[in-house]
Amino acid sequence: MSLNESASAIFSESPGKIALRTLARDKRSWISLSILGTIILLALFAPLYAHIIAKTDPFASTLNATITLHGKTISVLEPSTTGLGLGVTPIGPTWNIHKYFLGADGQGRDVMARLLYGSRNTLFIGTSAGLITIILSLLIGLIAGYRRGWVDAVLSRILDVIWAFPVYLLAISLSVVLLTSGLKIGFLHFGPGSMALPITIIGVVYIPYVARPIRGQVLAMREREFVRAAVGTGAKHSTIVFREILPNVMPAVLVFIPIMIALSMLTESALSFLSIGVQPPSASWGTIINDGLALLYTRPIVALAPGLMIVLTAAALNLYGDAVRDALDPKTRARGD
């Protein structure tokens, strides 16, 4: 290809289109998207599995249920035979899709059904919290970076303070308090069991991690010739921000999306694991790991299965994040990272 042709090939396509094409050619994006797609499908099929295939209520404890397996009647919760003989040992995995595929938890609930319902909550909370972080950070970054002066000073100081507050400590403190008081945003009131609590908390604590780099970019962008030119032609502030600056910080924002969703998801499951996230009888992957803690040495699958789901989902999201980053910034690719 001559120099002329390659130059025209570059200029004939928008950067967005080039990025999309690179992404579509990337093996990593297909691997991660198919993993994520499968997990989302499984989550969508949760009610179908619980009500039609396994015919079980994943939220009700069934302390003296029995099932028939290979012609024998087995109770779901057997009195414990190890240690002091206290407590119960739930039924282990039957690997039979119609009853207790992954066994039961300490309250005799079907672990598979809870796992599927749990994926809905974890995915929903992770995605909403991640997007809230991104949207608020973009807003703060644009305002602080564009207005500069005292507005920037105030916003940056606030970000500094939240940034220095250890993130898990802040999330845990907020969760403990809001679980007793509930949360009021304007006329909306969320009770202690509401998903809005972990979503809001996780969405807020990570803002400095995204808002600081975006502010930096906007600040740098404001000095660039094309923005100065727009200012010089007397363009309105809103035009400059939305038509000139926003499109140029978008690549950085897009890269953050999968990473922040993964991070939010991990945080949700950590909070739920500490029993200050999703509240029972609702399930999330974190709460199921917590349920499995007491059964770790007798029925390890209860804690292992949701953990594997978390790792798989987070890894897929991060892998996709890598692919998106490389597609949007070919320079990092050349660096061999």
Binding site: A262, L266, S269, A270, F273, A303, I310, V311, L317, N318
Partner: peptide
């Protein structure tokens, strides 16, 4: 490294 929950 970034996808494993440490408690799990």
């Amino acid at each position: 490294g970034i996808s494993l929950p440490v408690y799990w």
